[in-house]
Amino acid sequence: MIKKILRKSSLPALAFVLCMTVFASAAYAAGAKVPPPQQHWPHKGVMGTYDLAALQRGYQVYREACASCHSIRLLSYRNLQDIGFTEDEVRAIASDYFVMDGPNDEGDMFERVAVPSDRFVSPFENDAQARYANNGALPLDLSLIVKARYGGEDYIYALLTGYAEPPEDVEIPDGMYWNRYYSGHQIAMAPPLMDGQIAYSSGRSASVEEAARDVTQFLAWASEPHLQQRKQIGVKVLFFLLVFAVLAYAAKRRIWADVH
């Protein structure tokens, strides 16, 4: 029977599998630059889950080292409860920010303290203001940055740790920095992390690599907050389909027994 299947359909079937792989890899090759080295991430892999402690530290890094320039406008403060902050902690975090609200009964807009249901408050009013404050470069919104870059987490980590002195023959204009992994190597973002800049609540201060790892994981969660639920449901779905396929195959053999 195997022989029969092979003879009848293997060549075209193989061709199609080949087709798919080639297309997928071609699409990826199209976006590549200096490929970022592959790292191990706890949330990758079939059963990988987010490391909540790392996400919480990552939020701290974002807040202290990135939030002055980059918004994450698609997250709400209440979402932080999903990574292990308590309701009170979230309320306290939100209350550090002010948002515009209104109009009130008298028709006036007013400023109020942010509440957990508010979206993350952006550092700038609009893109023009953000550019003005950054020598014309736009610090983009980080809500989806891990999905919006080829290489995902590996690229973000590589970018944050990829700053170095430019090679001898390269002139870097004022306000630009050399980065091994940025496309074209010249980026308008100053190295955002420094050794010892962030003091974790454990009392230890983070190295650039540690802070980069943590903030990258936080940004991965911000891009794909339902990853864990997705994988949990996925396992059940695949298990069901597997059992069903076996039953369907057995039934098929039975029914076809008198024909074969």
Binding site: G234, L241, A245, I255
Partner: peptide, 23 residues
């Protein structure tokens, strides 16, 4: 005959599709 054969084929196809959707 073919309702069952299609069911089996469809299930295998769905397995691959769902593996991509969820993982």
């Amino acid at each position: 005959y073919y309702t069952i054969k299609d069911t089996f084929g469809l299930t295998v196809f769905m397995f691959v599709y769902m593996a991509v959707v969820f993982f």
